[in-house]
Amino acid sequence: MAMTSSMLAWWPDLLAQLVQMLLVLVIAPLVLGITRKVKARALRRIGAPVLQPYRDLWKLMHKEAVLAHNASWLYRVAPYFVFAAIWVAAALVPTYATGLLFSWSADLIAIVALLASARFALALAGMDVGTAFGGIGSSREMLIASLAEPAMLLVVFTVALVAGTTQLSAVAIHMVEEPVGLRVSLALALFAFVVIALAENARIPIDNPATHLELTMVHEAMVLEYSGRHLAMIEAAAALKLVLYFSLLICLFGPFGMATGAQTFKALALGLGVYLAKILVLAVALPVGETTIAKMRVFRYPVFLGGAFAAGALAVFLLFVSKSF
């Protein structure tokens, strides 16, 4: 692995790491654009062009940031921190190749915790100005996190018990190279993961990314005061987070096609193509799924996310009973 390899063997891994960092950054707004377009088409609207998120970000970045009088330094730093934390997390999830230089510096638990750091900062920023909407958004965001994060850790445990490791690159290699087969535990974990991913990315049925009624928002209410470049950072971070969860889904449950062995150019190109195809499939599937269901009331969340927690717990239980589940 990268950590023990000699100085000379670094550069391909470093290159893979840099490409990965840029890749997730570049495709994130596009993925968001595709989901919005597909959703609009599914609702028989024409919808904005798929490149609209790039334009939005560009526009927001060039606007002056409007701050409330009593906004503190935390309010101004938080967007950059949130963006950095999610970007770093997304850069550490193997997407097209496992040979990333720094993938060993944080395992799956650390990636979940990095996302928790980002959420911690954003929830605090939501409370900084002292508005009712910021507070309601932070409060509900943390409620969702309190229910989703333990379920996520149970999914992590499940995958780690199947693969014998919490290192994402090692998990991907295990899933590709070993005859893992169809497993009850992984199916339960997949169900839990999808529920968690919907909740964490503020998608229907937990939250509505397109709503304009403050009271029905969670994530959007929390960042209601933000504007200009700060809002651009938060929007970019949200887009990156969606890509991160897609990548995690691919890496944990369907890493076929990923360049796991020798990192030749052909393997890398193939891995990249397969990854992008899978992202496209997910970016279409998400809005199609979303249009078929309705948003939930806040106090239905515990039931929904509790289901994910129960599924994750059951999967871990089964694996403690026998490795073959």
């Binding site: 060039h62 940031a65 701050l67 963006f83």
Partner: peptide
């Protein structure tokens, strides 16, 4: 984290804008 955050802030301040305005809160 420091590198990614600082780099982003620097790029945005350089390429785009670093103008800020203080106003009463919006809510």
């Amino acid at each position: 984290l420091i590198l990614a955050g600082a780099l982003t802030a620097m790029v945005i301040h350089r390429v785009a804008t670093r103008a800020t305005r203080r106003v009463p809160m919006w809510d």
